[in-house]
Amino acid sequence: MQSTYNSHVKRIVVGLIVIVALGLAGKKLLAPKSFGVYGHYRADAIEEAAAIEIRHGTNASCLSCHPFEAQIHLSGKHSTISCEFCHGPYADHAKNGKKIGTLPVKTGEEIKILCLRCHNRAIQARPGEVIKTVIMPAHLEEQKVKTTHICNQCHHVHAPLRYINHAKRIVGMQEAS
């Protein structure tokens, strides 16, 4: 290969042009087809997102089949809380008015973890006016019980103050007499 004084420079320039051209071609080929139709995103993404099956049915979807829990739930302090937050999504459980799968029911320590996801004072950012928080195990020590107690031994999970208010009423009656 005979090289002149500037053949390497020419080759570099040609090489750079080829690289840029390949890059542009690659960019064209690899870019998703529907990209940029509406804006700087894949237009297909809209339809794809719309086609995703809805997994959560809201509390209304649970009430018809679970009137017993619903009635308790709606009467208590947790009435605004989503059933599905604690139990999992509707889609795993019911379809077209039929039960299709079991939802996990938390027991023991799991319940403690579940409750503390919202009621833990160690998470500093909880606005105390909206969600009352407790610090563990101080909360149990205040009640003068063993620190192994689980929340649902005193709080009804669906209406957390149900038993406590009940107990207070009984105690109040005793005090009155």
Binding site: S3, T4, Y5, N6, S7, H8
Partner: peptide
Amino acid sequence: LTFGSDNLSDEALAL
């Protein structure tokens, strides 16, 4: 690495 050129003439070096 040399882009296939072994030209080391003065002209090439000046370039």
